[in-house]
Simulated assay, not measured.
Amino acid sequence: MLEKIDLSKKMSKNECKDLMERLTPQLSLLQREMPKRGVPVMIVFEGFGSSGKGTMINELIQPMDPRGFKVFTIQRPTREEAMHPYLWRFWTKLPENGRIHIFDRSWYTKIVEDRAEGRRNREKTENCYNNILDFEKELTQSGMLIIKFFLHISRKEQKKRFKVLESAEETRWRVTEDDWKHNRDYDEWLKAFEEMIQKTDTDFGSWTIIEATDREYAKAKILSKVVEIFGAWLSEAERKAKAEALSEEETQKIFGASVLDAVDLSRSLSKTVYKKKLKELQGRMELLHSEIYRQRIPVVIGFEGWDAGGKGGAIRRLTQTMDPRGYEVVPTAAPNDF
C-alpha cells in the first residue's frame, strides 16, 4: 500500500499561499467553535524520521489560538511511566472538553519500533493494536474527536534530509546513528508502518496519508483535512442537536417508557432467605477474592443508582468478608469545572 503512493506530488508556493489565505481564517474560526461545543480533540502525527512532523505541527498551530491547544512530544517512557500499563501515560494526557492536544508521535511509536526492530512477534503486536483500538473507540464514544496523520517519504528523501541536517553545525546533533540505521532498514520500517495503518484505520480513527516530500503540498493537505473534519463534526453536531430536540413527553410517546420504568421494584426476600443467601454468597466471595489476589487480576466494580438507593450498604455487604488489604473503596463525586 505505502510503496504505491505517489510521493512526487507538489504544490507551487503561489498556489499554496492562495489556499492558505482561505484555510487559515476557516481553521481559526472552527477552533473557536469547538470549545463552545465542548468537544475534546486529539491530533496524532506519525511517520518516518525527518518526514517533517515538527514542521507540519508548527504550520497547523499558526492560525490557532495558543490558549486552546497543547503539543506533546512523545519520548521513551520515564521510569514511573514504565511501571504503569502501556497506555497509562496517554490517558494522563487526554484533553479537557473544548481543548486540542497534538501529539508528535503517539501510542503507536513503541509498537512500530519494536516491530521494525524484530522485538515483537505478530501475536503480541495484534494484542497491542487491539488494546489501542479499544482505547480509541472508548474515547470517541465518549465524545473525543481523533485525527491521525501519517507523514510518508521515500528512503532517498529521508537520506537527503539527514545529510542536509548533518551539513550544518547547529542541526548536526539531530541526526543520530539510530537515524541512519532506520534509513538502512527502511523496508522493515515501511512494513511496520503499513501494518500499523492496516490494523488501526477505522471509522472512529482513520488515518490520512500525507505525501510529505513537498512541504507546501503536505501543509496544504493537513490544514485542508483538519478544516474538513472540524467543519463536518460541527455540522453533524448541529444536525443531531436539532434531531434530538424532543420533549420528554414526545420521547415517551414515540419510543415508549425507559428501561427503568419496566423494572419490578416490588420484588423482595424474606429475612430468613436473605440471611441464608447472604452468608453463602459472602463465603463464596471470600474465596474468589483470595484467588483474584493470588493471580494478580485487577478488578473494578462500579455502583450507580439513586441517592439513598442503598449503594453504600451493598458495598459494605460485598466487602464484609474480603481481606481489606486487597481492595479499596473509591467514592466518586460529581466532576467540577476543571
Rank of each mutant, 00 (worst) to 15 (best):
S50W: 01
G283A: 03
L30K: 04
E244F: 12
N121I: 01
E238H: 11
E15C: 05
L287P: 00
R215H: 15
H289S: 14
Q26S: 13
A232S: 12
R174E: 09
L60I: 04
L29C: 05
V259H: 14
T125Y: 06
S258Y: 07
T332M: 14
L165P: 01
V263Q: 13
R284S: 09
D187Q: 11
D18G: 01
G52Q: 05
Q26N: 04
S258K: 03
A262P: 00
G52M: 09
K17L: 09
K110S: 12
D201F: 08
W107K: 00
S28A: 15
W91H: 07
E46P: 02
D323P: 04
T319F: 03
G54E: 08
A237V: 13
S258F: 06
P66C: 08
G312M: 08
R215K: 15
I147R: 05
S270P: 05
V259Y: 10
F90M: 00
T125C: 10
F150Y: 15
Q320V: 03
M11D: 10
R155I: 06
L7T: 15
Q75Y: 11
T202G: 09
R79A: 15
Q252N: 12
L223S: 05
L165I: 00
F150I: 05
L133N: 15
W88Q: 02
R155S: 13
M42G: 09
E113G: 02
D201I: 02
A192R: 02
Y327T: 02
Y186L: 07
G118K: 09
G38E: 04
S51M: 02
Y293R: 12
M56T: 05
G309Q: 01
G118P: 03
E286S: 10
N14C: 02
D6G: 03
C128W: 11
S106D: 07
L94E: 05
E157R: 05
S167Q: 11
R89F: 09
G52E: 04
V112Y: 00
R294M: 10
D264C: 02
I315A: 06
Q75L: 12
E286T: 11
F72E: 01
P35I: 07
F72G: 03
G313F: 08
E80I: 12
H101F: 14
G143C: 08
K110L: 12
G54Q: 05
Q75I: 06
Q282D: 01
A116Y: 01
P324M: 01
I100W: 10
K36W: 07
K181N: 13
K181I: 13
E291D: 14
V259S: 12
E126W: 10
I74N: 03
D261Q: 10
D203R: 14
E59S: 13
D214S: 12
W173T: 03
K276G: 03
E291T: 10
D323R: 07
E250K: 12
T92F: 04
P298I: 08
E21S: 06
I100R: 05
E166T: 02
T55R: 12
R22H: 13
I210P: 11
G68L: 04
K17E: 15
M144A: 14
T140I: 01
K53C: 06
L145F: 10
E157C: 03
G68F: 09
